[in-house]
Design a binder for these strands. Structure first.
Lengths: 141, 141
DNA sequence: GAAATTTAGTTGTATAATACAAATATGTAG
DNA sequence: CTACATATTTGTATTATACAACTAAATTTC
């Protein structure tokens, strides 16, 4: 088992390096990773406030506040005042936001497709499943 | 296949978020990811200059130069002048560097172990293999 | 072989993502 | 009503990074 753990920890470090390197050089679509995840989360989970989003991404509220404001500015999100709490807002995704999210998703899938072009379908399937499982488990570690 | 690619691209984005978040909050050992990868590379692949290292990590030479200088300052690396080229140096790892690298590796493995504590040995094995395969393929994408 | 060009590395500067702290405005409890 | 708590925004500092300018040494060109 230690053998596998050794591979996993090293390759995770390498993966982060590879992907962050890639994303600084060749921008994927118009969205950076944070923007992509925020739009995805809202598209899937519905309107949410910065506090909720920050919790989900384990980011500081101030960071998400700026990111959401930027997305609002670009017309991908709009603010809905909470009718029961004058301090609170939720962000909802716009049509343009959905369009951009989908374009970006296609670009990201394309990249994943290129990288895994010599893989079997089963390998891709398994990789996705294990990544998801890892992420799920990594929430509270 | 699109289904798998969709999972992969999303979970990759989430993974980066999780891990970078983790590493800003709970520092693993004394080494950040760059430092860890540089020490690992030199420990495994032998002494190397900043240009070589920068190529391997797809980072700018100036970035690696600073990182290597920091590691030298901490006593984890030392500089060896290239006898055939007065401009060039290679960095070699010190005993202290090896010690620190191993401690860090243990800490990283421990974290990977925690995250995958409910996995089967086979899943860990497969995950490591596919991560490695993905990284290998991602070099030239 | 001197001048021009290239190369290895360092240092200066700018940018972007982030956290933490302070500020604002609204809500809730005593 | 006053004090405290909460949701969000804004100010400031840090860090990792890239790009550009620089230094010194090597190589090429004439």
């Amino acid at each position: 088992m230690d053998q596998s753990l050794e591979v996993i920890e090293l390759e995770l470090a390498v993966l982060i390096r590879r992907i962050t390197s890639y994303s600084t050089h060749k921008k994927i679509g118009k969205l950076d990773r944070s923007a992509y995840l925020i739009l995805h989360q809202i598209a899937v989970g519905g309107a949410a406030g910065v506090k909720t989003l920050a919790g989900e991404f384990q980011l500081d509220i101030s960071t998400v506040s700026r990111q959401a404001a930027a997305l609002e500015h670009k017309g991908y999100l709009y603010k809905i005042p909470d009718p029961t709490d004058g301090r609170a807002y939720t962000f909802q995704i716009t049509e343009l936001g959905i369009k951009e999210l989908n374009e970006d998703k296609q670009a990201r899938m394309k990249r994943a497709k290129e990288v895994t072009k010599n893989w079997t379908d089963e390998e891709r399937e398994t990789f996705g499943t294990l990544l998801k499982k890892f992420n799920q488990a990594a929430i509270d570690v």
